[in-house]
Structure formats: structure tokens, C-alpha cells
Design a protein around this nucleic acid. Sequence first.
DNA 1: GGTCGTAATTTTGTATACAATATGTATTCT
DNA 2: AGAATACATATTGTATACAAAATTACGACC
Lengths: 236, 236
Amino acid sequence: MNDSVGDRKAGLAAHLKRSVLTLALEPGADLDEAQLCNAFDVSRTPLREVFRELAGEGYLTLHLNRGARVSDLSHTTLRDFFLAAPMIYGAVMRLAALNATAQQIEALKLAQVEFREALRAGSIENRALANNHFHQITGEMAGNIYLLPSLNRLLIDHARISMTFYRPQTQQMAQNLTEACQQHDAIIAAIEAQDEGAAAQLAESHWNLSRNQIELFVMPAALDMPMGKLSRKTPA
Amino acid sequence: MNDSVGDRKAGLAAHLKRSVLTLALEPGADLDEAQLCNAFDVSRTPLREVFRELAGEGYLTLHLNRGARVSDLSHTTLRDFFLAAPMIYGAVMRLAALNATAQQIEALKLAQVEFREALRAGSIENRALANNHFHQITGEMAGNIYLLPSLNRLLIDHARISMTFYRPQTQQMAQNLTEACQQHDAIIAAIEAQDEGAAAQLAESHWNLSRNQIELFVMPAALDMPMGKLSRKTPA
DNA sequence: GGTCGTAATTTTGTATACAATATGTATTCT
DNA sequence: AGAATACATATTGTATACAAAATTACGACC
């Protein structure tokens, strides 16, 4: 295995992306150049180039004289997310149905196999990554260079939001995941049939499901317990 | 005037952006590191960081072992442009009307003064830059981090497309420019009134006008001249 | 004359040394 | 003790030297 500097650089980028998406690196966490340098055996110059690249893609944020941090994920960005996602996802699915190549459809099916496998195994990380991969491929299918940058940013934060919100705790949540998986199948079918309308419709349904799943977590059912019986871990 | 390396670096980035937008650097042109280094008196390291940054924003494209080129502007990207622009512009204007701060509105008015001045002076470059600036401010007003990357890419190519297509040659074209200027005023008014619907409507009109202006160039009126009288500069 | 292969040159990518900035710590003074 | 300053350390930014790759130039061969 002769891996050149270029390969290690690519590996570093992949590792960082993966870590950001799975929250292995939390939003706001700051990255240690020295540490990463000897961990991946590259010098600071290429490392810093990777930082700038990932910053451009929205994974990281660079602060002058203060290095690189994982991009924030605040309540403000969450609101932005809910506003922009349905529009972009809808447009991308529509274009994907129109433009997908046979090869891309194969790739999408493969991604779906991985997604299903992750669901079965119950790995939240792999599920988030596989879902991310699935939707990235739909982005490639749409192939519109003006839509892709926004889509990719949405996908970054969608993965991170699912990592925090999608742990299936209730029956409903588990069902939602199964349904999401079925929707993926339907999406593949719509794209294969070049059915633009169906794809757009499915994008909307898929988004609504995702939104509901998040809502189940952000606004859970109120605790059904008489006052005074709630345990208080923090005083006063 | 003590300008630090950081300042020169910023100047370099501004110069490159400006050059790309105004077609001073043509699409596909490749950038000479050595030349830019001593022109802006920075070493290659920060120069290459600027390259990567601008590549992330869509101005440049980096090719492995082959340096940086100005991003292409092909017929494919033009088609993508026409598909994506109305959607993004509409969404941005709508959000801008909802979220603009008083300070941002002042900035927008200032940008419009510059735009009008460029129109009066007849400078295509300044017109393209001022228009770019105007719409960038609307992007800031919308303030949605997921929409901005796509908007900014659209704006880059909108500027470049106007540089090639918007030279007012006919009466109609000149009138279109005047109308575009009036639409800017109306946009400012709608945003100031927080009239979401009006802003979205204006975005559509403004886009249609822009689209028509481009069409006037891409599909000009057929030459009205008997066969055989057309001058032939290229033989056979 | 044209084509292929090889060497020289140029250009790009990486490592490291140095400079500048920020951070942490100790010491002094109130 | 607490605040403030000066100093030491660590981190980030830049310049330059070196390595690798691509481009060009040249000459041998067909």
C-alpha cells in the first residue's frame, strides 16, 4: 500500500467531513493543526489547504489568527434550514428525475442498499452517512451547478441534525425511519421512470416526514406527572 | 500607508473577484502564480490560499498539478443558470423583504446610487459590478446561509453573462436598462415596506426583464438582406 | 519531413524555518 | 486577595527551500 501525500490529504479531508457529519467533531469544536498533521502525516501547508477547502464547502469556519472550527449549528441556522430545505430538495428531485443517467441510478440503488443495511444494524452514524450519500447522488443527478452548493450545505446540517434528533426512542420514530426507507425506494422508481412530478411530490413527502421526526424530538409530549414529583438535579 | 500582508491578500482577492466578474479575466483563463505573487507582493502560500478560497466561492476552478483557472461559463452552465435563477432570486427577495434591517436598506440605496451612476456614465464594467453589489446586499438581507452560496454563484455568472450580452445596441436594450433601474427602486420600496409578496413579484419581473435582454442578444432579429450580399470574411 | 523519446525548463505541490499574534502564567502592586 | 503588567509558551500566518509533476525543446530515428 503506497499512499502518496495526495492520498493522505484526501483521507484527511474524508475523515474531517465524516467526523463533522456524524458529530464526532461537535459544532464549534476547534481543530488542532499540529495534532492532525502527525495523525495524517502531512505538513501544515496541505493541511491548511484542506481546511480552506472544507470551509468553502461549509464544513468548517476559519477565524483569523484563531484557526479552524467546525461550523456552528445554532437555532438561527435551524430556522434557515427549515425555510430553505423544501425548496431546494424539491427542485433537486425534479431535476434528478429529468437528467439521471443509468450509471447514476445504479449508484443510487447501491446507496440505498447501504442505507437499509445501516437501518438494520441500528448504527445512527452509518444511517446519517448513508442518507447523506443517497441525497448527494440525487444532487449529482440534478447536475445543476447553481443548486449544488446550497444542497450540499443543507445536507451537511441535515446529517448533523439527524444525529441529534433521530435516535428512535418511540414507536412512532422507528416507524418513521421505515417509511423514510420506503420513500427512498419510491424516489428511485420515480427517477428511473423519469417522472418529474412524482419525484417532486416524493421530495415533499420525504421532507415532511423528516420534519415531523425532528418535531417529535424538539417538541416531545409533555411529561404526565403531578407537580413536585419531578426529580430536580439542578438546585433552585 | 502601511498595508500589511493581510491587506495585500485581501486586495488580491478583491482584484481577482472583480476581474472575473468583469471578464477582464476570461472564463477558462489560467492564473500565473509567480506573476500575481510579485504583482501583489505576497508569497505563494497566501496566494494559493486565496485561490482555494475563491475556488470555494465559484470564481475559480483548481486543477491538480495544473493550477487555477477562471471558472468556465459554457452553454451547459447557461442552461443551469436559467433554471435556477428565478427560484433563488425569488426566494431571496421574499426573505429580504421579511428580514432587512434599516442599516442594510441604507446600504442597498447606496448601491442603487452607484448603479444609476454607472448607467449614466455608460460603463458596462461598473454597471455589472454595481448590479452585482445590489443583489449581494439583498442576499445579506435574506440572511439564509443555505441560500447564499447558490445566490452568490448565480451572481458571479449573472455578472459575466451581462458583460457579454448586455451591451445596449438597440433602442429596446437601452430601454430595458432604464426599466431595470426602476425595478431596483421598486425593490427597495417593497423591502422597506416589508411587503413580501411585492418583493417576490418584483423579483420575477426583474428576472424576466433580464432574461429578455439576454434573449435579444442570443436570438437577434434575422438579417434582412437578399442572399449573396452578405459580406464573407471567412472564405468558403 | 514527421514522429517518437529523452533531457532541460517551468510550474505546481510540500516541508520547514521564521515572524506575528494570541494565550497562559507568574509576579508585583494596590 | 484581586488586578494588572510583563514575560514565557503555544498557535497561527508567511516566506522560502526543496520535491514532484507537467510542459517545452531538442535531437535521434524512421
